[in-house]
Each structure stands twice: as structure tokens, then as C-alpha cells.
Write a protein that binds this DNA or RNA. Sequence first.
DNA 1: CGTGTTGTTGAACTGTCTCAAGGACGGTGG
DNA 2: CCACCGTCCTTGAGACAGTTCAACAACACG
Lengths: 226, 226
Amino acid sequence: MANEVTATMPVASGVMLSLRKHQRIPLGPSPVDHAYIVTSGLVLIEAKLPDRERQVLEILYASDVYCMHDAPESLEVALVAATSAELQRLRPDALSTLNRSDPEFASRVTAATAIRSARRTLHLASLNGQSGDERFADFLVEIGLFLGDPSAGGRSFDLPLTREETASYLSLNPDTLSRIFSRLKGSGVIRVSRGRAVVPDWSALTRLSPLSTALTELHAKSQAAL
Amino acid sequence: MANEVTATMPVASGVMLSLRKHQRIPLGPSPVDHAYIVTSGLVLIEAKLPDRERQVLEILYASDVYCMHDAPESLEVALVAATSAELQRLRPDALSTLNRSDPEFASRVTAATAIRSARRTLHLASLNGQSGDERFADFLVEIGLFLGDPSAGGRSFDLPLTREETASYLSLNPDTLSRIFSRLKGSGVIRVSRGRAVVPDWSALTRLSPLSTALTELHAKSQAAL
DNA sequence: CGTGTTGTTGAACTGTCTCAAGGACGGTGG
DNA sequence: CCACCGTCCTTGAGACAGTTCAACAACACG
């Protein structure tokens, strides 16, 4: 199968990349520090250390901006499409040119960067201080807010990450994650069928997530910035 | 005792803040999204969640830039001086004015932001994938690089964080950290007296730290950017 | 030289990981 | 349409790393 990334013709100062689910772009040592803007879909940041498994460090949503210098090269970072996704790739000079010539573009990039930074802070806070169950609840709130459709006090949304990706993102073992998930399904807070999650009572979930307030605040801010 | 932050007269578009060790600046809800630039010393980013202990999320070094919108308000972030420290506080408009009028300032802020972002990535990778011993080794390498004086194959440096702060930063319990530290001292990799650490064989320490390569790369980049 | 704070250490405990077996699902070919 | 296969998910039992609690030691400060 063609594992190549589809690159359409250059758009205004940059290249559009179309990724199918599970396709990856390794960010190897490169002469230029590209910047990537997520146009649609969900993209994971993965890193790999020598003699260790890949780990998922971050989730990127539409309108997020990722720069290659956000991580040292020796981490072997890669972008992985969790859903089919579209990215815009910009050379650093193109980015700064756009930033100077197009004030609206500049302010969108600034806002997107601030929101991503805050999201990273919350993820760190989630990993740092909390139990596996709480981290998973935080994760569901985050995904539910950014991907979900509200429906009468509840929400439903896709779960685009595999078990292993989710576990890595939450710094848990896949087995442990499965146990946590089972417990949560058993308690009736969430139902899942075919990769789609239904949370009948959203506030019941937020009560399990110590970061739900902060995540909601962040999501509101990111909605406002569009 | 005077627990007030000393603010000297406004310097060129901004205020200088002098902090003594352990002094803190709570970043409560504020009408303006201030930016803080660390001029000297070591500053911690702490966050607090309802019904939970404060946690240390990040270490800021000289020339780092912290913006209030790097975290949602409900996280109750505070800056804490780990050593005596000096900060420059800028209003957002002052920051963007400077960015436009002073290209050299702008490029220093951009470089500092990129380096801080990479440091955050490494910290996350350290917490995500590794054992307590490895995380602590990563921490020592980071501190040693940024604060240490090299000396014939070894390095010596201050340990400005309290046990509790270090433990929180590494997502460990202070007791566990103490055990890890004791083991490391027992193995002869590190000696400590009066808050100053001596590592006689730096490469022995780096061999214990999975992220040492990436941290060294990052530190070299931050040196180059000054 | 007390007194309070911070660091150390042991013993028991708990959450998470490991390993291995079994189950569910989705695709493929008869 | 069903049997087959591979892959991913689930679940139990045991092991282990890290936590908790409590007692003690080291240190800093008045």
C-alpha cells in the first residue's frame, strides 16, 4: 500500500499534507525547522528514546501549530494522524513572512500557540498529581469537549486513539487502562460501541475529572479564538 | 517579615521585580495577561487544584519568558523563587510593542520561547516513560547543565529546590525521592554538602539519565542563543 | 542550647505493571 | 453466509515500584 504522504501543490507559501489514519511523518534531522499547522483531524506527537517504546506526548487539534524546535532532535519526534488529517507545512521564513504581512494570520497563530501551551500545562498537571482513574477522566473530558456533540445533558464523541496510544498519553499500561475503562463502563458513566463513546450525564464525568473546570475554561477560550 | 515583592521603578516598558528565595507571586485572575521574563535566578511554576497540594510544573531559568495565558486561571498558578531572582514584568501591549520596535529583543524572546518549549517536552518525556531513578537522573543532568561549573570530567552545582519541590517536579513522593537520593549517594555518583552537589564523573551520571543526550543538545542550543 | 523545620529510614500497604490465557471483533476466502 | 484468521481488547494472579505512616536524625535559627 502507498505509505507516502499526499502532498498537493504548494498553497500560499506552504504545502498541504493529507494523512490517512495512522500515517506518520517522522520529524528527522532536517536542514529547516518546519512549522506544521493542523487544518483538520487529530494528530499525535510521538517521541522515541533509544531502547524504549514510542510514547505519545501530546494531542494536536485543528488549528494547532507545531514547530520542529518544540523538541530536541534526539527525541525522534513524529506526527501521527489519529484520524485522517490535513496539515499545512511552512518553512520558517514563510511563517515569519506571513506573520509580518498578514496580521490576522499572525494573531491566529499567536492564539493557537497560547492555547496549545495551556493544554500542555493541563496535561502535565494531570499526569503529575493524579491517579490513573482521574487521568483517564481528564482525558475523556478533553476529548469530549474538543470532539463531542452535546445532546441533552450528555455528549457523544469518537475515541480516535487506540488503547495503546491512549495508555501512553496517560502514562499508563494498556492493561491498566482497560481495567479503568471497564470500571467506568460498569459504573454507567460512559457507554462505547464501535469506537464511539456516549456519556449520558456529562456532569457525572466532570465530577470524576479534577481538571474538568480548567479544561472547560480552556475549551471556551479556544472556541472564542476562532 | 516583609513578604512584599520589591518592585523598582519602571524600567523601559516594564517593571523589575526582585524576589528573595521562597518568595512567590500568585498569578491570580487579572485584567491583563502579563508576561514575565526571568533576568536572573531560578523560578518555579507551581499550580494548585482544589483539595490538592501545590505541584511544581516547571523550572524557569534566566532569560525564560512566561506568559500568564500559558495556563488556565483555574489552575491557580504561582511563580516561586527557588533562589533569589529577578523578573521583568511586561504588559502584553508593551511586549508586542517591543517585539515590533526592537528586532533583537523579538528574536531573543522567540529563541527563549522555543527553548522553554523543548525543555517542557523533555520534562514530559521524562515523567511519561521512566522510573523514579531515571527521572531523578534526568533532573540532575538538567540542573547540572544549566547551573553547574565544569571541573575536570565532573561538575558541581547548587540544588536550590527543597526535597518537596524536587519530588513534586518529578512526580514522586518526598520519601521515595530521599531513598533514590540515598542510593545514588551510596553508589558514589554524587556527593552533597550544604545544598551543593558534586558529581565527580559526569559521564557516569549521564549514563543513568535516558534524556541526557537530548538535555545536552538543548543546553547547547540555549547557550548558542544568548 | 532548646525548638521547629526538613530530611532519612523501616515496615506495611496499595496501585500499577507483567505475563499469560481467553474473548471479541473485523476482514478474508471458501 | 459461515468458518477461519489475525489483531486488539479484557481479565486474573502474582510481582514490584512507589506510597504511607511513624519514629528518628540532622540541621538552621533564634
